[in-house]
Structures are given as C-alpha cells and as structure tokens.
Amino acid sequence: MSRIAARFAKLKAEGRGALMPFVEAWDPDHATSLALLKGMPAAGADLIEIGCPFTDPMADGPTIQLAGRRALDAGASMKNTLAMVRDFRADDTDTPIILMGYLNPILSYGVERFCADCAGFGVDGLIIVDLPSEEADLVLPHATANGLDIIRLIAPTTDDARLPLVLNGSSGFVYYVSITGITGTRTASGDELADAIPRIRRFTDLPIAIGFGVRTAAQAAGAVTHADGAVVASALIDIVKADLDSNGGKPKPDTVARVLAQVTALAEGVRGVRSAA
C-alpha cells in the first residue's frame, strides 16, 4: 500500500479528514521552507504538498506566483526541491509528500529520470497542473513504473461525461478544485461543495481533497464535512509574505513558528469534524 493510501486508510479508521498544508519549496529561502516542511507533521499535517517553483504558473493567483518568484530568486530548482524531500525523509518516513507543479520543469529534468528520482527521494504523488488527462500518457507510464500516484484535478467544469476520463489512471486521491478560478482568490460555498463532492463520489472510491480557496480553520472544517481532505496553501504563504514585507524582505525569527501555529489551528478545525466518508 502506498503511503498516501495508508494515510487515508488510517484517517478513515479514525473517522476524520486530512489536513494537507502546502509549502512552496525555497520560499523565501531554503532554510525557512525546509524548517516549515519538517515542522508540519508535528503541527498537525496529515499529508504535505510541496509546490515546485515555476516562472509561469498559469493556474495560480498572486500569492503563489510571488512565492515562486521568491523561490527562484533564492536559487530553487527541481533538483534541489527533490533534495528537500530527501532531507525530510531522514526524519519522517510516514507522512506522504505530494509534489505540485507545472510540466515544463519536469520535461526539462527528463520525465523518466524525474519519476525515478521522485521515488528514490521519497515523493509519493504528483499533481501536474497543466497535464490534463488528454496529455497524461507523457508521464503516467513512468509514474506508474516508479510507484508514484498521479493525482488528478477535477474542476466544477468537469461534467459527468468527462469524469470517467479524468479518473482513469488517477490514484492516491483526487483533488477537487473547488472554484472556477486561480488559487488564493474565491472560496466555494458549502452548498457548492454539497453538490459537487457526492457527484464525484458516484464515479470513484478514491479519497477526495478540496483545494483552492480554503483559508481558515472553519473553511477547512467545512471542506472535510463534505470530502476527505482540505488543502491550504495561499493562507499559509500570506503569513510568510507579510513578515517579508514588514522586515525588509527577510523572514522574522518567529515566521516559521507562526506558520506552524496556523497549521495547528487548521488541524484542530479538521479534527473537530467526523468525516463524511
């Protein structure tokens, strides 16, 4: 059983949903992002998404765009993003790590070598934003050969006719993009989620995580009322950015602690809800 499947099985047995915080690799620098990553499991993260910086993140709002820019300016690359996973795995062999990013840096790295290195360094799953099902054969065989889960995005625009195609070849969990829009902007209403999640469940037994627009503990709790997990990204990055803005571009001594405190607050929100599944 993959780490992702094992983790969701464990949470299901506990009767609760998953909190999946996001950390942009190398934002604003290597040390800060590695400290965030390493601190997240103890703070309450059940799975962790690592954002792979890209110059042109077309599905991301200003928060993640700027985080990616800061990371690249600090020297981020695909290679040293993978190295962060290796360093994380030195202390933690249980928490699933999912890389989220765009296709071009993966193509540039070499898809086959990338998937092999991901597996070797301890990555469990991939979310490739600009790789829809129609193009997935570029990556899927190599991901499968290396035991990596391919986590598909499902959007409000993905209709019933299309869902089987999108789900075909997806594993680990499915990621419901809860709004038509970019990250860190709008938030889906409870009614929208109450319509969307059961619709997707008719087509898959995979766990469903909700992302895009989940910012607060209450919203994370709302998300796991309907689904199996909540992804929080921009709200955590905003804490980093506020510190950088007020401290001459440098993180403050307690920046990491405050982001992790927010992860804990989100985790408490999630843990206060019995899972719907």
Partner: peptide, 20 residues
C-alpha cells in the same frame, strides 16, 4: 486529432479549462 503537429502542439491546460 490530439492537436499535434508532429510532437508539437497539444492541449496542456488546467482541468478547469479543458472542457472549454
């Protein structure tokens, strides 16, 4: 049919846009 000219072209967009 996949929008390719040789190995070039295609449809590399987020799922939200794909149906459109």
């Amino acid at each position: 049919a996949r929008g390719r000219f040789g190995e070039f072209g295609g449809r590399f967009v987020a799922e939200t846009l794909m149906p459109l």
